[in-house]
Design a binder for these strands. Structure first.
Length: 215
DNA sequence: CTACCGATGATCT
DNA sequence: GATCATCGGTAGC
């Protein structure tokens, strides 16, 4: 008897219901070098076209966001700020356009692989400080690096025969979940769609959206 | 601990 | 041409 994983019906729900339900669960990535697994401690929900100004699907379907309009349970990976990847899990049936951003977690298996991947992305400095255990996947771009997720993983089914799965373990207790505004966005600040496990040290620090001035 | 700022390029208008 | 679901370093409390 093998491991049990979350099925598609888990993801065929609104993102703001899936996001808190993912907390405490373990996402696994089986790579050629071995398994890397993260216990999710922070997520954010992103909503439907025309409804959520912070969602990549707000203005409808484009080449970049097309995976979000596909079948639920697939991974949507996007590239941003010219240097970072972020990973999401698609929610609701084909044609809807919504997802949950995986913001942070605790590496529970393959910490050596995760640390090697994280250190490889650091600029060559004189005396690079060792990355603390809790910072390995503390933040969405860090989580993607630690798990080895990038362009190649965009569109992969996480409910099928691929290398990505979410274990069907117990989720965090509702009383242990914090709720608040999403991080780093310009619009949609009123919507309380960020969820985290209270008092967990791997939850990312809050950051305000930083409007840029042109050079 | 919080606050700010530059890096860097794909994406969309 | 503007924006961007970020990060690491630095400054300051």
């Amino acid at each position: 008897m093998g491991e049990r994983f979350l099925a598609r019906e888990f993801f065929d729900r609104p993102a703001d219901r899936v996001a808190p339900d993912l907390l405490g669960r373990v996402l696994v990535h089986d790579t050629p070098a071995g398994r890397i697994a993260v216990r999710l401690t922070e997520t954010e929900a992103y909503g439907l076209p025309g409804e959520d100004p912070a969602s990549h699907t707000y203005r409808g379907q484009t080449p970049r966001n097309s995976v979000m309009f596909g079948e639920s349970g697939h991974m949507y990976v996007y590239f941003t700020y010219g240097m970072h990847f972020c990973a999401n899990l698609v929610c609701l049936p084909r044609g809807m356009g919504s997802a949950v951003l995986l913001r942070a977690g605790e590496i529970v298996e393959g910490a050596g692989l995760a640390r090697a991947a994280r250190e490889a992305t650091r600029a060559a400095g004189p005396a690079p400080r060792r990355i603390p255990e809790r910072d390995l996947a503390r933040g969405p771009a860090r989580l993607a690096v630690a798990l080895g997720l990038g362009r190649d993983h965009n569109g992969l089914d996480c409910c099928g025969a691929g290398p990505l799965r979410v274990l069907a373990g117990e989720a965090a207790a509702p009383t242990a979940i914090g709720v608040g505004p999403r991080t780093g966005i310009a619009n949609g600040k009123e919507t309380l769609w960020r969820f985290w496990i209270k008092a967990d040290p791997t939850v990312s620090p809050h950051r305000q959206h930083m409007p840029r001035r042109r050079a």
